[in-house]
Amino acid sequence: MRLRLASLLAAAALALLPTTAQASVTYPDPQPITGQQIIHDPTLIRLKSGGYVAYSTGGIIGARTSKDRVHWDDAGNAFSTPPSWWYEYNATGDPWAPDLSYRAGRYWLYYAVSSWGTNHSAIGVATSPTGLPGTWTDHGKAFTSETTDTWNAIDPALIRADGRLWMSFGSYWTGIRMVELNPRTGKALEGATVHHLATRPDAPYAVEGPYIVRHGRYYYLFASYDQCCAGVNSTYKIRVGRSTAMTGPYTDSTGKPLLEGGGDLLLEGHGRYIGTGGESIFKDRGRDVLAYHYYDADDNGTPKLGLNTLSWTKNGWPRVF
């Protein structure tokens, strides 16, 4: 991403998005953290046993732990070896973009296996009694996509609502989708409808990494737009829309549907913090916390963990501080 002066960011934001969900036109920096900061596509949770764990793309689902959400330690990987079925999707058994949640007395870890530039992809699911690395039991494929499909089964994110379990997912290939899961198995219901939530009007439909949360009477869809994974040349940014129904339609604060390229700009790169995206949201002591990665321009574009608290305006839109 090109570095821009704060004044130019302010002018652009005010001119183009007068009622966006962002905190300010200059954007907040990530909250200070120490220790092992390198991460990509983070998913975090506050453990029932105390402390925090984060999983991410890299390794066999790389793990980080923290006692206070400030100092982070490398904790190895979720798995000691890749499950054998991962090799159906790439030669190295490389997983991407995990999602961590807790329900029914267990921790649930969803993740994607694929190859760059193809939608021959799968989302897998594993469970653990503690949520800690080395304790996961893999249960195989939860949902898949093939080259004949118009969606890509990567970047999973779970949400429960009204007794039902849903998974949003998607990357390029016409954008963000959603499917209902069986709460018992954690896998897609047989014959379940694949709902369409967000896309871009122009190829290659550069939107991915969805995450949905409920606040008040709305469901909020956060997603990463533009280019990931290019270090300081990344243009990743986080946009958001909302809906009164889980399956949409989602619109931004101007009323533009996310299926027509809408989405309020919540956070984008600024200063040394380039390509903010790969986001997830978790609850910590009753507050919503946004987790994401950025590429550190002061450290050769190394991907690092960004954490910011979300607040909500009177009109019900999220902002970052």
Results as ranks from 00 to 15, higher is better:
residue 126 A to M: 07
residue 69 R to P: 00
residue 117 G to L: 10
residue 228 C to W: 09
residue 301 G to F: 07
residue 300 N to W: 08
residue 43 T to V: 14
residue 236 Y to R: 05
residue 167 M to A: 08
residue 286 G to I: 06
residue 267 L to T: 11
residue 82 P to D: 06
residue 165 L to V: 14
residue 315 N to V: 03
residue 172 Y to I: 02
residue 171 S to N: 11
residue 103 R to P: 04
residue 275 G to E: 02
residue 20 T to I: 00
residue 129 P to C: 13
residue 177 R to I: 01
residue 258 L to R: 06
residue 317 W to E: 07
residue 197 L to Q: 06
residue 266 L to G: 09
residue 119 N to E: 13
residue 116 W to H: 04
residue 301 G to A: 08
residue 313 T to F: 09
residue 269 G to Q: 06
residue 213 V to G: 01
residue 92 T to P: 01
residue 19 T to M: 02
residue 307 L to P: 13
residue 304 K to G: 02
residue 174 T to R: 12
residue 159 I to M: 15
residue 109 L to P: 10
residue 52 Y to R: 04
residue 62 G to E: 03
residue 165 L to A: 13
residue 295 Y to A: 03
residue 290 L to M: 12
residue 120 H to Y: 11
residue 220 Y to T: 05
residue 233 N to I: 08
residue 82 P to K: 14
residue 183 P to K: 11
residue 45 I to F: 09
residue 320 V to P: 01
residue 76 G to W: 13
residue 180 E to G: 09
residue 204 P to T: 04
residue 154 I to A: 05
residue 41 D to I: 06
residue 209 G to I: 04
residue 303 P to N: 11
residue 201 P to D: 14
residue 173 W to V: 05
residue 288 D to V: 03
residue 174 T to V: 08
residue 223 A to K: 02
residue 195 H to L: 01
residue 303 P to K: 06
residue 77 N to A: 06
residue 169 F to T: 03
residue 298 D to K: 00
residue 53 V to P: 05
residue 134 G to D: 08
residue 216 G to D: 13
residue 263 G to C: 11
residue 272 R to K: 10
residue 151 W to F: 15
residue 76 G to M: 12
residue 44 L to F: 15
residue 174 T to M: 09
residue 226 D to E: 11
residue 81 T to A: 14
residue 160 R to H: 15
residue 148 T to Y: 14
residue 51 G to P: 01
residue 74 D to R: 15
residue 258 L to S: 08
residue 57 T to Q: 03
residue 230 A to S: 13
residue 18 P to R: 11
residue 260 E to Y: 05
residue 56 S to F: 05
residue 239 R to K: 02
residue 80 S to D: 15
residue 309 T to R: 10
residue 189 L to W: 12
residue 29 D to M: 03
residue 100 L to R: 07
residue 263 G to Q: 11
residue 204 P to S: 03
residue 265 L to A: 01
residue 199 T to C: 07
residue 11 A to M: 05
residue 292 Y to W: 04
residue 50 G to H: 03
residue 76 G to P: 15
residue 48 K to Y: 00
residue 244 T to A: 12
residue 26 T to P: 00
residue 68 D to A: 11
residue 265 L to N: 03
residue 23 A to W: 14
residue 3 L to P: 00
residue 67 K to R: 14
residue 269 G to K: 08
residue 31 Q to D: 12
residue 188 A to S: 14
residue 99 D to F: 12
residue 253 S to G: 02
residue 71 H to L: 12
residue 202 D to F: 05
residue 180 E to C: 12
residue 216 G to M: 11
residue 150 T to S: 14
residue 259 L to A: 13
residue 168 S to I: 12
residue 73 D to E: 15
residue 34 T to H: 03
residue 104 A to W: 09
residue 207 V to Q: 07
residue 3 L to G: 09
residue 215 H to N: 07
residue 219 Y to W: 12
residue 103 R to Q: 10
residue 290 L to T: 10
residue 53 V to R: 04
residue 90 N to F: 09
residue 222 F to Y: 14
residue 262 G to E: 05
residue 289 V to W: 15
residue 253 S to N: 09
residue 170 G to M: 05
residue 95 P to Q: 06
residue 150 T to L: 09
residue 179 V to P: 01
residue 102 Y to K: 02
residue 15 A to D: 12
residue 217 R to N: 15
residue 296 D to Y: 06
residue 254 T to W: 00
residue 19 T to F: 11
residue 300 N to E: 13
residue 312 W to K: 12
residue 315 N to H: 08
residue 313 T to Q: 06
residue 206 A to K: 01
residue 94 D to T: 13
residue 219 Y to C: 02
residue 252 D to R: 04
